[in-house]
Computed example of a mutant assay.
Amino acid sequence: MIKNEKIKASEVYVTGIEGEDLGIMPTAEALKLAKQLKVDLVCTSLLSSPPPCQLIGAGAARQKQQQDAKRDRPAKLKEIRLTASIEDHDYETKQQQARRLLQSGHAVMLVVKTGNTKQSTAARKLLEDLLRDLKADGRPTTGIQVSGKQSMVQLDPLN
């Protein structure tokens, strides 16, 4: 985030504090206006000419920078472990846990532990049921993978 005297362009496209369009003006004039209003002139993008700048209060600029940093953070992969023979109440609990993680922006790896090959079909059915129930909150990035004594699938959040 480039602000105030660090903006090197000769003229900038300025947007006011309330979002009103102030038009294109020389950078020195825009800085003078920012000082009069006791706010910062913040450049929002360097890709266009003249660069768009916005008049933002000092606290709001810092808060916006923190929000942008938080939004750019990569999502963590959280693992939820289940067993093939799961009770209805436990299924609901794990489903709610996965939904909560997906809604908060995390990717979820659903892992079903199995004891033998007979349970692997039950594990596959359990994962298919979970995928159907969590369709509104996440989408699978991988298919259901069955390997040895476990079956798994990864869900990414929709937002």
Rank of each mutant, 00 (worst) to 15 (best):
E92H: 05
G16I: 03
K94L: 12
K76W: 10
V14G: 06
V12N: 10
S85R: 14
I24H: 03
H106T: 00
A34R: 13
S49F: 06
K64F: 02
I86G: 00
T114V: 12
Q65I: 00
L47Q: 15
A75N: 05
K113Y: 08
A98R: 13
I24W: 06
G19K: 07
L102T: 08
L22T: 00
T93A: 15
D88R: 00
G59A: 08
D40T: 05
T117W: 06
D21W: 04
E18R: 13
L82M: 13
A75R: 12
R62P: 01
T44P: 02
L41E: 13
I17S: 01
A84D: 02
K8N: 12
K113G: 02
G59P: 00
H106C: 03
K8Q: 14
Q97Y: 02
T44K: 11
H106E: 15
L102A: 04
Y13Q: 11
A61L: 07
V12M: 12
I7L: 08
K38N: 11
G59I: 00
L55Q: 00
D72N: 15
P74A: 11
Q95N: 06
R99A: 10
H89D: 09
K38D: 11
N4A: 03
K70E: 12
E79I: 15
L77P: 04
R99W: 05
V12P: 09
E92Q: 05
R71Y: 07
G19A: 04
Q103K: 13
K8A: 13
Q63M: 06
E11L: 06
Q67L: 05
E18Q: 09
G59T: 01
D40I: 00
G57K: 11
T27H: 06
G115M: 09
L101C: 07
S48T: 14
R62S: 03
